[in-house]
Design a protein around this nucleic acid. Sequence first.
DNA 1: TAGATTGTTAATCGATTAACAATC
DNA 2: TAGATTGTTAATCGATTAACAATC
Lengths: 213, 213
Amino acid sequence: MTSIPLPSLRRLPRYLNVLENFQSQGRDTVSATDIADELDLKPIQIRKDMAFTGIVGKPKVGYNIFDLISAIRKFIGWSKETNAVLVGAGSLGTALLGYEGFSRRNLKIVAAFDSNTEKQGRTVYQTRVYSMDMLESIVREHNVKMAIITVPPPSAQTVTDALVRAGILGIWNFSPAEIQAPPEVVVKREDLSEGLAVLFVHMQEKQLQTGEA
Amino acid sequence: MTSIPLPSLRRLPRYLNVLENFQSQGRDTVSATDIADELDLKPIQIRKDMAFTGIVGKPKVGYNIFDLISAIRKFIGWSKETNAVLVGAGSLGTALLGYEGFSRRNLKIVAAFDSNTEKQGRTVYQTRVYSMDMLESIVREHNVKMAIITVPPPSAQTVTDALVRAGILGIWNFSPAEIQAPPEVVVKREDLSEGLAVLFVHMQEKQLQTGEA
DNA sequence: TAGATTGTTAATCGATTAACAATC
DNA sequence: TAGATTGTTAATCGATTAACAATC
């Protein structure tokens, strides 16, 4: 079985958003065209992507919204709760601790860690901040497999090493540092400056077109 | 002239990070292979991407680091300061107001806006929070062309409309809502749940490989 | 000079899109 | 039944990779 293409995978959460909107409007079926219209995509792309999740639609009828939502959630792994820890309770880390979008996707941050003793012992949006010493015991106690890194770039690799030692298997790295981890650990980079670069260049290109360089 | 491919554009900020590291180590030239090794990419891809920024290297010598940094910064539009406003001073908005990575890229958030009267008048990480009424006058006063949206999904479209009326030409949308804007306005989505989905699925795939489903 | 590294042209790979048969 | 919509197979498009000539 061939694995889902990365661009398709990235579109799945968008489909989920749209489907949840449709559902809250009381609808119970959608066609690929309905979804495509919401997202400015082509219907054929939706159908191709849906096939990867294993869901099948009915010709003439379309897809059952409830089944489709379940299939996508299950495919991504959002149908059951997942525990995570967060390292780095600075401005970005604090924001993520309070981000409502995570609980919507069944992600639960069970503990935060920070080397700053001033922050240790505090509770940020209902999550307790611990010293780094506590990392391994808490990770193992809650059987945590996923970690979020929101520390400054110079600390990113040290933190990564500690997480790996504690048994973490997936790291979501919000620091712009390039971190190295063993092959069994999945690392997802989330460098905000990438998105900023894309926006800037596209704005420039658009301005050039209108002659307003 | 054909425009830079999106994947290449997204790699440019990573090159910049690596080059700045090399520079702080006192080096003044790099080869494509040096960069590739840092980022787990192939040298040929670096050379192809560099060509888009217009920079040329010297056979046998490689690229001049200072020139390369300048060329990439200039290409992206990070060599001069850019003003932006932020709408939605909630947890994520507050984080972005304090995010050090932006000033490194010459992005200056001149004002924040929030409909919550409790937040209005406060100063968050040196940025003043205003009521939405002030949006248009402040945007025009500072000649702001770029805006960051960090409001809850139901407000995203209303905020977008207000930004467009105020003359904003580029929107960085951190809300998971799909927003509509006129064609002259560039919209960059930054939905964190996309990255989360990619991490989850890749973790699952890795577990399956090790037989630990 | 000889070797290393760039930049270009061609080949491959993978994702998107098109065409169309199957079917509720 | 006829029309609409799915899912599959083929064609196109674009990005990555390979091969290699140019050159400091």
